[in-house]
Computed example of a mutant assay.
Amino acid sequence: MTREQLVAECARLGAAELTYAALVSIESGRRKPDGRRRREVTVDELLVLGLALAVPPLLLVLPVGSDETVPTVPAADPRPPHTVWRWWTGEETPTLSGPTDGRYYTDPRSITEGGPRWSAAWAQAAYTASLYPEFERRRFAVDKAYRRAMRAGDEPVRDKERATDTRQDYFEHLEQLAYHIDDMTRAGLTVRRLPAIWIEDMKGLAMLDHPDAVTPEEDD
């Protein structure tokens, strides 16, 4: 892709400010006499550039698999890209203090006087962020189990035990999804719509603490 093509694609995505000159300044990393970059990249522009280049935006700033380390914050040492990646996604708690005895430690201070510990506040926020990816994993598992159960039920009645086992496997995965939906509800999160038959089964088997938290998918 040429710069001209990238400029056109950015404009198509609504970022007309990413002109040819702007892209040159970004790519060259030219700085002013005081050390600041002549052209910074906003979070919105980072998303545009990622979509225009067909590259996950985080890979534009965290080159996983190529660079050994990347900068973190000015007051801390660089870390491996994948480590910082996990900070961005909330999968790992940042460790800025250290190294002490060759190890880094999470920030032990309180956010404010008498307030929660920094690490505890981070963990609480990261927990909420982790609920959606886990929901998708469990939803996918239920979908696979449900399809297996339906196929087994449609087969000629030759293996009743297999049909029973696949049905039980579906209910077990559905129960795990229901537990997770309860966690999301307690965290105040909106639950993605689900197939009506799943909701009927969860309600019929009293799997949900808050049945009204789930709504069926709309018909196409």
Rank of each mutant, 00 (worst) to 15 (best):
77 D>R: 15
149 A>N: 02
109 R>G: 03
90 G>M: 10
143 D>G: 00
105 Y>W: 12
88 W>H: 15
116 P>K: 11
140 F>P: 01
107 D>P: 04
101 D>M: 10
137 R>W: 03
94 P>W: 00
130 S>H: 09
147 R>L: 13
126 A>W: 01
100 T>I: 15
113 E>S: 14
113 E>H: 11
123 A>T: 14
68 E>V: 08
140 F>D: 11
113 E>K: 08
135 F>C: 13
147 R>F: 10
66 S>N: 04
76 A>I: 11
117 R>M: 08
71 P>Y: 10
91 E>C: 12
110 S>K: 10
133 P>V: 05
73 V>C: 08
98 G>H: 01
147 R>I: 09
125 A>D: 07
71 P>M: 06
97 S>Q: 03
92 E>Y: 09
136 E>Y: 04
142 V>A: 00
110 S>A: 14
110 S>G: 07
88 W>P: 00
86 R>E: 14
129 A>Y: 11
75 A>V: 13
75 A>R: 10
107 D>A: 06
119 S>C: 06
110 S>E: 15
149 A>G: 06
117 R>S: 03
83 T>F: 02
125 A>W: 04
139 R>E: 05
96 L>Y: 15
107 D>C: 10
125 A>S: 08
96 L>T: 13
79 R>M: 14
71 P>W: 12
103 R>E: 13
89 T>D: 12
77 D>F: 15
100 T>K: 11
88 W>T: 09
73 V>E: 15
116 P>C: 09
95 T>W: 01
132 Y>E: 05
95 T>V: 12
82 H>Q: 12
83 T>Y: 07
123 A>Q: 08
116 P>D: 07
92 E>G: 02
111 I>E: 08
114 G>L: 07
94 P>Q: 01
72 T>K: 08
131 L>Q: 04
87 W>D: 08
148 R>M: 07
73 V>Y: 07
102 G>L: 06
66 S>F: 11
123 A>I: 12
80 P>K: 13
72 T>E: 05
114 G>C: 06
69 T>S: 14
133 P>Y: 09
78 P>W: 02
122 W>L: 14
105 Y>C: 03
141 A>S: 04
81 P>V: 11
76 A>T: 11
149 A>S: 13
74 P>G: 13
111 I>T: 14
83 T>S: 01
95 T>P: 05
135 F>Q: 12
87 W>A: 02
95 T>G: 01
73 V>W: 06
132 Y>C: 00
80 P>M: 11
101 D>Q: 12
128 T>H: 07
140 F>Q: 12
134 E>K: 12
137 R>H: 09
110 S>F: 13
149 A>Y: 04
138 R>E: 06
84 V>I: 15
116 P>V: 09
131 L>V: 02
130 S>K: 05
142 V>F: 00
145 A>M: 02
70 V>K: 11
106 T>A: 14
88 W>S: 07
137 R>A: 05
85 W>D: 05
120 A>K: 03
67 D>F: 12
134 E>P: 02
103 R>H: 06
149 A>D: 03
